[in-house]
Structures are given as structure tokens and as C-alpha cells.
Amino acid sequence: MKDRGELTMRHLAAKTGYSAKSWERYLGGTTLPPREAVEALARLTGDDPVPLFALHEIATDARNGRRARTGAQPPERTPEAEPEDGREQPASLTGPAAPHSGPRTPPIVLTAPAATGPAPGRFPRIALTAGVAALAVALLAVLLLMLRLGEDVPPAAAAAQPRTTAASTPPSYTCRIARSDGRWSAGINNGRNTEIYYGATGADVAEAQCLLRRAGISPGGIDGMFGPLTLRAVKTFQQRAGLVVDGMLGPRSWKALRG
């Protein structure tokens, strides 16, 4: 969504209120982003946040379950007790003693057969590994299913979501184009020439959108949001005016817009 919207970390930080370092951790998978950051990214890129919330809940449950599993340790084996004084087994277990006059024969010690099966604790570890692998496969399948469901949602169904509608309602601006002292103005930002770039919002963006429309280039709606349509209109205007085509409205671009 970030790359498709041509957003940079600086744009995300300026638009959402979360720092660029935080977005690097979120997008790099180091830290799970908060729900508010997910909603802010969806609003900025014009996407439906409902499938993203479902994926966020799945990721949260998976991380909590992984932490709970890593905290459990298999029980340790305790060695069998041995005689502290190093004495031999009683005569009843070692057989009859040899006469004192003859050479002493070594005692015959009865021992249990060595265990040939797997060591205790191996099966729980194998079962735990298999369970983690099965859970990872299931989560991946659910993720792919949610992504496909998100792509198949019709626009009408997406518009019916109350939270999405409330979050995506842009403010309205009215263009009042007038010329004073040889400079064009839309009457929105009091004639400011503030530098703005992709991802910016507010009256300065709405002023630029009005002036772009006056110049015969459509920026989309006059909504005060520097989105893809406004970016395309700014680049088209800069190319026509012989300016550097960087998509940012600086002093020279404002001067050319106000003509």
C-alpha cells in the first residue's frame, strides 16, 4: 500500500503522527503496529481498513501464542540415587560370597537392561514443533483468504462500513478565484506560499488545487489532500511551466501558479 501510493517514510510520519523510525519497524516486521497506525495508513491510501483489522487481530493472536509457547520449558530428568558411601550391593543380589581362604571373586551385579527407546522429553518437543508448523501454515492460509476476500469486496459493500465512511469524509473547500495586484488567489490560505508535497493536507493543498484547476489541469476534487491525482496535476503543470518536475510545490511553482 505504501509503495503503490508512492509514499515515503517522511510522508507517513507527516500524515499519520507516527515517526519515520516507527514506520520502518512496522513495515520491516520488527514491531507490530498499533491498530490506529493501520487505520491511518488505510485512510491515507484510500483503502478499506476492515480486512487490515482482521489481519491485525490474526497477527496479534499469533504473536501472543508464540510468546506463551516459548515460555514453557520441558521438565529436566533427575539422575537416579546412588549409594553415597560407594558400597557394593547386598549379598542377596550379588550371589554367595567366596571363601576367605581363596581368591576373592568379583561380585556379580544385577543391572537393568539399557533403555532403547527415545529419551523422555523428545516426543513433547517433536509435537510442539509440529504444532507450530501447522499453526504457521493455517495462519498463512487465513492471510491469503482474507487478502482475496478484501480484493473481492464490491465498492458498495465497502462504502456501507460505518467506520470507513466516517474516517474517509474529507473537508469541503470552495474556490473563490480572484486576481489582486497581478496575482491569482483562491481565497483559502490567505495567499501563503507554503512548501507542500505528496501526503500533505489542509488549506494550502486546497489553494493549490483551485489554482491548478484555474490553469486547466484537474487535480481531482478540492479536498485539501495531496494525493495521486494532485501529484499528477502538479507534475503536469511544472512540465508546462518549464520548471523542475519534482511533484513538490515550492516558491517557484507557487509563483507560476499565481501567475
Results as ranks from 00 to 15, higher is better:
residue 4 R to V: 05
residue 15 K to A: 15
residue 15 K to T: 09
residue 16 T to M: 08
residue 20 A to D: 13
residue 26 Y to A: 05
residue 38 V to Q: 02
residue 40 A to N: 10
residue 42 A to I: 04
residue 46 G to E: 00
residue 49 P to G: 02
residue 49 P to C: 02
residue 63 R to L: 15
residue 66 R to L: 08
residue 70 T to L: 15
residue 72 A to V: 15
residue 76 E to I: 08
residue 77 R to W: 13
residue 80 E to K: 08
residue 80 E to N: 07
residue 84 E to K: 07
residue 89 Q to M: 11
residue 95 G to T: 00
residue 97 A to F: 03
residue 104 R to D: 02
residue 123 F to W: 10
residue 127 A to F: 03
residue 127 A to N: 05
residue 129 T to I: 14
residue 129 T to M: 12
residue 131 G to Y: 07
residue 141 A to C: 03
residue 147 L to Q: 09
residue 152 D to C: 10
residue 152 D to Q: 10
residue 158 A to M: 12
residue 160 A to N: 00
residue 163 R to C: 06
residue 167 A to S: 02
residue 170 P to R: 06
residue 173 Y to E: 09
residue 173 Y to I: 06
residue 174 T to P: 04
residue 179 R to H: 12
residue 185 S to M: 04
residue 187 G to H: 05
residue 193 N to L: 10
residue 195 E to C: 13
residue 199 G to V: 09
residue 202 G to I: 10
residue 204 D to R: 04
residue 205 V to F: 04
residue 206 A to W: 03
residue 207 E to Y: 03
residue 210 C to P: 06
residue 210 C to Q: 03
residue 212 L to V: 00
residue 218 S to F: 01
residue 218 S to H: 00
residue 223 D to S: 04
residue 225 M to D: 09
residue 227 G to H: 01
residue 229 L to A: 15
residue 231 L to Q: 13
residue 242 G to P: 00
residue 246 D to P: 00
residue 246 D to K: 00
residue 252 R to N: 08
residue 258 R to A: 06
